[in-house]
Structure formats: C-alpha cells, structure tokens
Design a protein around this nucleic acid. Structure first.
Lengths: 243, 243
DNA sequence: CATAAAAGATGAATAACCTTCATGTATGGA
DNA sequence: TCCATACATGAAGGTTATTCATCTTTTATG
C-alpha cells in the first residue's frame, strides 16, 4: 500500500502529483471557458488545447462535459464557502456577520454569474441531485449562513417568525435575483442599497428605533419616495397594457 | 391593406391561418419537449416530428433553436402575466392580492421548473437582454406585482423601509429559490408555509394600522407627484427587438 | 539492468445534432 | 389556365461530444 520514496527526491514527479496537476489544469481551463462563454459555446477541444492535453485525455479525468462542469462548480463552491467562513470568523457580532455574508455573496455572484448559469445544465435532475457532491457543497455553503442565523435568533437580533429554511431561501434567493437586476441597471453601487434593505427586512425591529408612531411610518414613505426620484433616471417605468 | 374575403367562406384555410396554426403547433411541441427534457436533450428533429413538419420547416418560423426557446418563454410569460392579473383583479385587498401572487408564482414555478431552466440558455447575455422581447415580458409580469405593492404601500400594509425594486427582487427571488428547496423536500405542503412566512416578512407590523389623518393624505399627494416625475423622467425608452 | 505489466495519453474515427439550401409543391390572383 | 410567390422538404454539410485501438511512459520485479 504505502509506497516508499526513493532516496533521490523527485519533488514534483510522483505519478499522483502529475495526475493531480493535470486535473487542476483541466479544471481551471474549463472554469475559465465556462465563465467566458457559457456552457453551450464552450468546447472540450478548446479546454484540452488550453490545458495542453489531447481531447481524449479530458475524458480520463471527467466522465463527460457535464461532469466537468460539475467539477468546476464543486471547486467554486468550496472556495466560496471557505471565503465566507473566513470572513465570518473575522467578525464578532451576528449582524455584521450577516451583512458580510450578504455582500460577499452578492459580489461573488456578480463576478461569476456566467459560471453560475451553468448550474442548471449539469443535468442533476431532482432525482439524482439529492446526495450529489454538488448538493453537499451547496449545503456546506448555506450552513455558514445557518450557523450565523441561529446565533442571531438566539440573540434576538433576527426576526423569529419564520422557519430557518425559509429565511435562508429568502436570503439567498433574493440576492440571486437582485444580482440580475443590479447588472441590468449597470450600477454596482446598488449592491449596498440592496444589502441594506435586505438586512432591514430580516433583522428584528429594534426596540429603541422602533416606530409605533404613524408619523414615522409616513416619513419613511416620503424618504422612500425621494429615493425613487433619485434612481428614476436609471430605472425605466414598467409599461403594461391591460388586455 | 385590408384583404377582402371571398364570398365562399374558407373558414380554416387562409394562408395566414394555416401559417399561424403551424407556428402554434411548433411552439407547443417545443414547449412540451423543453419542459420534459430540458434544453440540451431537446432535439429539433423530435420537435419537427411532433408538430408534423419537416426539420427544415422549423427554421422558417424560428431563426434557430435558441430563438425557438425564447419564443416558448415569451408565450409562457404572457400566460403567467395574464393569469396573475386576472387573479389580482378578482380580489379586493392588497394583502390577499400579494398572497395570491406569491402562491400562484410558486406553484407555477414548481410545475414548470424545467422549462424555466432554459431561460439562462437563451443566450441573452447582459448586452442584448435589455430591450429584448423576453425582458419586456418579464417586466410586464413583475409590473403586476409592482402595482399591487404600490397600493399596499399607500395603505400602509407593506413595509416601507426599502425601495420597491428591492422588495420585488426579494419577493420573486425568494420564491425561485424556495421552489428548489420545496422540490428537494418533496413536500408541496411547504408551499403554504413558505408563502405565509414570506408575507410575514414583507407586511408591515400590524400595530401601525391605517391612519386616516391629514398627514396620510399629504403623503399620498407627494407619492403621486413622485410617480408623475418618475414616468416623466423615464420616457427615454430605447426599444430594440431581439429575435 | 532488462523486461513485463500497468497506467496514462493520444487523436483519428464515430455519431449525434443543428442548420442550410437546392429542389419541389401548393396557393391565389390575372 | 398559368405564373409568381410563398411555403415545405429532407438530404447534405459542418460542428462537437465521445469512444477506442494504439502508442508511450512509469513502476514493479527478477
């Protein structure tokens, strides 16, 4: 089982190392291409060329194009999770942590949306999705949120009226959707607005700043209206025909 | 311009009618297939077979496979919008309307998720998405929500701390995401839970019930003014057609 | 060191599929 | 009746994913 190394060091040349290095090359070339061209316009031939192997070699490492895409996404999620956890660990209170997670997620999506569009194509139909590596990766990622959210709940910082899984879906779903809007608006400044508003929504109303007075509510409506005016230039009015 | 009909009625046989009927056949066959098999596994040959035409004929009606997919989605959104508006019109208060919109959206997604996964594939990259027919369809659909939400805001039923576009993205985004979770859980009963929780989140705390003070009227006047300004500013409509 | 077995890599061949186009056919007016 | 036009066809062409017989490199063994 355990292979003994020769006295002569071959630092980069064990079989295993070479194979792993090759797999990484293929993966990174694939990721590059998927992110540039999307799934359909990415060709195995070009991936092979960029990673310096023959076409057939790709199939020694990945069963097919879809499996390759899955491999890329698994790596992506691993990085995402790691960065998220690291950021969370560097902060001390739940609200800041949630805000960080939101901003980090939104910005990452914005930077990699084309890669993420590959996700539905990986032919993980509902039958084989559960239990797949990709599903596990996704769960690992959202688990970072879950832990922070549970802390938030126990500290009465988060709203508690809803199930955790619902809150999680609202959190991530809202951002996936919001990212598209922000891209269409072509104004990355909206990231902050979006995160702020999302946080307002999920955080528990604070006692002190709580407004029971109708006046405060009205004032807020006015402020919102003014905000609408500010963004009116970049936002087009929805036109609708009643038919 | 106006073609005069022959004295002899040919009820189903004008050239135009036949062509339109054929287009519908192709569209419905395509929709069926996309919904069954997804984009990648759907073949033009099979669509042609199911609609009783030759392969090449499909290309007389749609520029290519992607355009066909877009056509299917445009039809889908048209139906969705119509059903949403109809349901809203049948109800009388904003909260019920929002709840209906949520339930309707969630259930429709659950029934057609495979078709909707085709959306990212239609190669409407961000460059040509804005102004496309599909974008317009999407805007028409969300406009139904926008109108209801505006009503809700003016009645102090909805939370007002956030911009409307953010609220919209949270609303739809949360459901798109939630649909996947519900499918994985394989329990459609969760639809109601999800909608309930989502509603709790976006509805204003019930303490601040309706206030019929003069201030309310003033605020409404201001909001109306802002709306006028909004529509006035955004009359720079760059219309582009993508097909 | 020689040699064989195993593992890894190759790229031409195959198959599937989208798309085009030269050819054929129906339609509707003159 | 006849022609111009619009419409339909399906075989052929081009692109790509995928396979596999063959070749090369590596490792284990005497």
């Amino acid at each position: 089982m355990a292979s003994v190394k020769d006295r002569t060091t071959k630092p980069r040349n064990t079989r295993r190392e070479r194979v792993e290095h090759r797999e990484e090359k293929i993966l990174s070339a694939a990721r590059e291409m998927f992110n540039e061209c999307g799934y359909g316009k990415t060709t195995i031939a070009e991936i092979a060329r960029r990673s310096g192997v023959a076409d057939g070699t790709v199939y020694l490492y990945f069963h097919n194009k879809e499996a390759l895409a899955r491999g890329v996404l698994v790596h992506f999620y691993a990085e995402l999770t790691q960065a998220a956890q690291k950021g969370v660990d560097a902060l001390s209170n739940s609200e800041e942590r949630l805000r960080f997670l939101a901003t980090h997620h939104l910005q990452t999506i914005l930077a990699h949306w084309r890669l993420l569009e590959v996700l539905p194509l990986t032919d993980l139909t509902m039958d084989n999705y559960e239990g797949s590596t990709l599903h596990q990766m996704h769960k690992d990622y959202t688990a970072v949120f879950d832990r922070v959210a549970k802390d938030g709940v126990s500290q009465n910082i988060l709203r508690t009226e809803m199930a955790l899984w619902v809150l999680r879906d609202i959190f991530f779903g809202a951002m996936d959707y919001g990212a598209r809007t922000i891209m269409i608006k072509r104004q990355n400044g909206h990231v902050e607005t979006f995160v702020d508003d999302l946080m307002k929504l999920i955080l528990a109303p604070t006692e002190t700043a709580n407004i029971s007075t109708p006046l405060e509510a009205l004032t807020q409506r006015m402020e919102t209206a003014v905000e609408r005016l500010e963004t009116a230039t970049s936002d087009k009015a929805p036109s609708m025909s009643t038919s």
